[in-house]
Amino acid sequence: MPHGEAATAESFRSARVRRFLVAALVFAALALSPLAIRSVYLQNVLVLTLLYAAVSQSWNILGGYCGQISLGHGLYFGIGAYATSVLFVTWGILPWGGMIVGGVLAVAVALLIGYPCFRLQGHYFAIATLVIAQSGLVLMQNWDFVGAARGIQWPFGPDSWWTLQFARAKTPYIEVSLALLVASWLATVLIGESRWGYWWRAVKDDALAAESLGVEVFRSKMAAAGVSAFFTAVGGGVYAAFLAYIDPDAVMSFRFSLLFALPAVLGGIGTPWGPLVGAAVLVPLGEFSRSYLGGSGSGLDLVIYGALVMAVALARPQGLLSLVPRRRAAP
């Protein structure tokens, strides 16, 4: 029925327009939020929330859309953080360039890892990513050129957008993290609408069936891994500039790898807004409980955070985003 098809295409287009309008509004509100949130402490929480949302969105591309559960994204984050720091501290290359170098390096590593690992299934794949990331951590802890376990301290300098160093102001980091979130959100949505996106979902649902229908399963996984690693590494570079000090445990421990997956899973895995929703709940709760209950390492903050993670995982297996009523199924 031509008439019906036209109506479907029409509603598809209008749903798409609405989706981008909503996104523009949300991101604009976040960009302006430092005007309303003046407290340095809260701005700090906002930086972390946006950064976790961005990196979790990157994880979501491989884990949520393509269904390959990586427990080793800490490695790519670490590569970005280290590339940015080493290039800046040793050779004075601006962090903007360092992030891109880190991103490209992470893509190369992801493809190198993916080549043998994507033959593995389920838990064997997850443990392989974990083991490779852990090997990277051990190497960094013992590699003197990058400061080994001592890490790298960024030099003190005047506030500047060039070097992305600001002694007190948090707003620049909010905007940079937000820009990364927007970029990874756009990549997710635009690729998700393309042929690659459909391939990824087919691979996630049933790789064998997809293969028999002509989907290039292996290349789909490699592409997802590359995109995912790139944005994760750029996030690592931003984080390094934000902290101005990194060491192996602070940027690439196993806990990081789980913490990058967590917002996507709790918010809604394989959805474009899941990571932001998850991060908006998890990061502030983690930070607030640490400030109010975690004094002198009492551990009470961890009890609350752990209980929260369990509760959300068990109570909302489809993610928090599923609480929002939808008027119409997304295309």
């Binding site: 967590l262 709790l266 895995i269 551990g299 752990g306 369990m310 995982a313 068990l314 297996p317």
Partner: peptide
Amino acid sequence: RVETNRGMVQIFATFGLSILMQGAAQYL
């Protein structure tokens, strides 16, 4: 009992438990 995302729910329910237990041990 979970019907969707069972694998991830199991990972994160037990991961949450591990954080909780570590925190409790630190507290006590």
